[in-house]
Computed example of a mutant assay.
Amino acid sequence: MTIQLPGTGGTLRAYEPRTEPLAVAAGTSFTSRTVFAAAHVVADPFADVSPDAPAAVDWDATLAFRRHLWAHGLGVAEAMDTAQRGMGLDWTGAAELIRRSAAEARAVGGRIACGVGTDQITGGTLAEIRAAYEEQLALVEDSGAQAVLMASRALAATATGPEDYLEVYGHLLRQATAPVVLHWLGPMFDPALTGYWGADDLDAATDVFLEIIAAHPDKVDGVKVSLLEARREVDLRRRLPRGVRCYTGDDFHYPELIAGDAKGFSHALLGVFDPLGPLAAQAVRLLDTGDTAGFRALLDPTVALSRHLFQAPTRFYKTGVVFLAWLAGHQDHFAMVGGLQSARSLPHFARAYELADGLGLFPDPKLAEDRMKTLLALYGVTR
């Protein structure tokens, strides 16, 4: 059996789906790397909301997906950009997500880290930005989750130079009750974060970032770097104080960065590990045994899919992530909070389906094929 997929120039081409998924088994957490999958949220498709209204979340399906990730040994990075923070999910919704997911993590023994930001405000003074961060940090710590200090649009808009970042982050790190992860999200993921750390020049910004860490190394578990520049990440991780981890957020170069070299390696906190969860877990277990070649053989072929999902405009990668979750049977619909399911084109979806199917990511390939045909029919492809 074949399926007709959009080709170039408005044409259709035949694609033959695979009939069997990749065989993967659930398992425990890893020994050689700390790995988080940044998880998406599942919208409530029956809620009568507009794209500008507060998000309506299907809590049962959202938490079930997190149990799926934990069952494969992955940690869950919660309420971060993959969960549409600032792109459909406001702070009220994120706070509820943190509370529910942290409780679920305690119930199943899963590892969880949660995003701390300032999205309850759109701007303000440095004091107001600190207060917004403090409110979110307190909620995350009270929930029992590890905190991830995310980049702040409000701080990026208000700060006049590196000294403002040093002051705000220094204040927060002194307050934190346990080591946190610092998140550097590049402007390709959020244009409002251009010039973060007080400099457009990335070398100068890196120096400020490292100065913050060096002043509080006991309060920094690690850093998550999402700049999509492998060389820069390697240089940064070699300059980190001993004991501070580098969590790659590079969805273009993650196999080589996680594998590492003689001078070190990156751990992982990745949005692409949402759709890749079981396969990524199997690859890291090979790495646990010292089988770096096996790890690369399994994970390297996934990069084409990741680069496709994260192609510019990169911030819309969430649409592809949720699309694949629907095809894989993790949710019954392809609706997103904020109406973001419309952010990618039919040819983009078709290529994502083809690449994911080729990797064997769909537990039920026939279900994925049928759902892809349903989407194609909505766009007028009926043969």
Rank of each mutant, 00 (worst) to 15 (best):
A283P: 14
A350S: 09
A312Q: 13
T289D: 15
T289P: 12
D332M: 08
R285K: 07
L298H: 01
H333A: 13
R344I: 00
T289R: 15
G290R: 00
V272W: 00
A268P: 01
G339N: 06
R285M: 11
G290Y: 00
T292C: 03
L298K: 01
D288Y: 08
D261Q: 10
V303Q: 14
S266G: 12
F295I: 04
G339S: 07
L340T: 13
D288C: 07
A350Y: 02
D274I: 02
P301Y: 03
A343C: 13
G264P: 10
R296N: 06
D332P: 00
G294H: 11
A312D: 09
F273Q: 06
F273C: 07
T302Q: 02
D288G: 07
S342E: 12
G277W: 08
A293C: 11
Q282K: 15
V337C: 07
L276Q: 14
F349H: 03
A281F: 03
A328G: 10
L269I: 01
F273A: 08
H348M: 07
S342C: 09
A312W: 13
G290S: 00
P313H: 15
G339F: 04
V284Y: 02
P347G: 04
H267V: 01
L298P: 00
A343S: 14
D332H: 13
A281L: 02
D274L: 12
P347S: 03
H333W: 06
L279W: 08
P278S: 09
A297Y: 02
L298R: 06
V322S: 11
F316E: 12
G277K: 08
L327N: 04
G271V: 06
L305V: 05
Y317N: 04
F334H: 09
F295M: 04
A268T: 04
V321W: 01
P301I: 01
V322I: 12
P275C: 11
G339C: 06
V337P: 00
V322M: 09
F295H: 01
V272P: 00
Y317I: 02
A281C: 05
F265P: 04
L340E: 07
H348F: 15
R344F: 08
Q341F: 00
L305G: 08
D300C: 01
Q331R: 13
L327S: 03
L286H: 10
L276K: 13
V303I: 14
F334G: 02
L279F: 10
Q311V: 12
L269S: 15
L299R: 09
A325G: 04
A325V: 00
H333S: 11
L279A: 11
G271A: 15
G329Y: 03
F310H: 08
A325S: 06
F273P: 07
K318G: 09
V284G: 06
A335F: 10
P347F: 07
G320M: 05
D291S: 14
A280L: 05
V284N: 02
A297H: 06
W326F: 05
V272Y: 01
L340S: 11
L340G: 05
L346M: 06
Y317S: 05
G320V: 09
V322Y: 03
L305Y: 12
T319F: 11
G339D: 04
F323H: 05
G339Q: 07
L269K: 13
L298E: 02
T302N: 02
R296F: 05
H348Y: 15
L286W: 05
G339I: 03
L287Q: 04
F273W: 13
A343W: 13
A262Q: 11
L324A: 11
